[in-house]
């Protein structure tokens, strides 16, 4: 009995001690707890809270730089004119598109994809649309020069620019034969940003996503673009997309 008592009393006292120790700590928590960075000497102290890691900034927009497209337009060296009509979605070309030097002008217009303001972004978008529509077999040899402007535009991580660039990419792969196949070696440049934004989808539950009709949902746009890549990219397209975007699922094989 005595032994038991002796054994129980120290344990009790130990519990008391803990309670005693905790109370002042709780008191310190409220008054003097300081925040500091991890892995510093301060972080070892009892009354400190370690700050979490900083944001990596994967979704952060990058600043735009002035583009060559803007410079040339302001100098008046592009063969285009703005047409103020009721619809306002056409470019008046000063020369026939068939006579344009695609090697020079197509990369230049793609460079304008980085633009955010009117009229530059309008001219770039509409100019690319017209040139792809009427390009035919002149587009294929220029593909290698288009990759850097596309990559620059995507890596701005601006929502509006990404939307427009994705629509341009969808048009590009269907613009002529073999263009889809020619893009496959450049997936490493184009797809990383798509991988970042692929899950940016609106989870609206059973509500209605009103941007749907205008195709402004980045997640859906990326999915569509990847499917277009796969359909027009030949046999090796799928495995190359899967390599860059592991969560992609084939739209043909399944």
């Amino acid at each position: 009995m005595v032994v038991e008592k002796a054994g129980s009393s120290p344990s009790k006292s130990a519990g008391d001690r803990c309670a005693l120790q905790q109370e002042p700590l709780g008191h310190v928590k409220k008054s003097k707890r300081q925040v500091c960075d991890g892995f510093t000497v301060k972080a070892m102290m009892k009354n400190t809270v370690v700050r979490g890691p900083p944001l990596a900034g994967a979704f952060k927009e990058r600043p735009t730089k002035p583009t060559a497209f803007r410079k040339l337009y302001e100098r008046g060296e592009l063969p285009i004119a703005l047409e103020h009509d009721t619809k306002g979605n056409k470019i008046a070309w000063k020369v026939e598109i068939e006579n344009l030097d695609y090697n020079y002008y197509l990369p230049l217009f793609f460079d304008g994809l980085c633009e955010l303001t009117f009229p530059y972004e309008f001219f770039a978008r509409q100019g690319i649309h017209d040139m792809l529509e009427h390009g035919g077999n002149k587009i294929l040899p220029v593909i290698p020069q288009l990759i850097i402007p596309i990559k620059n535009a995507l890596s701005l991580r601006n929502r509006q620019v990404i939307c427009i660039t994705l629509k341009v990419l969808q048009h590009l792969v269907v613009s002529a034969d073999m263009v889809g196949e020619a893009l496959v070696p450049y997936y490493r440049q184009i797809l990383p940003v798509l991988n970042i934004f692929k899950n940016m989808n609106v989870n609206s539950g059973d509500g209605i996503d009103y941007g749907q009709q205008k195709c402004e949902n980045i997640g859906d746009l990326i999915e569509e673009t990847l499917e277009a890549f796969e359909r027009h990219g030949g046999e090796t397209a799928y495995i190359n997309i899967k390599y860059m975007i592991p969560t992609y699922q084939s739209c043909i094989l399944n």
């Binding site: 056409k90 008046a92 070309w93 000063k94 020369v95 026939e96 598109i97 017209d130 529509e133 009427h134």
Partner: peptide
């Protein structure tokens, strides 16, 4: 129609 020349000689495609 694919291409038209306007009165000011610019082209609409």
């Amino acid at each position: 129609v694919k291409k038209l020349q306007r009165r000011d000689n610019t082209f609409y495609h």
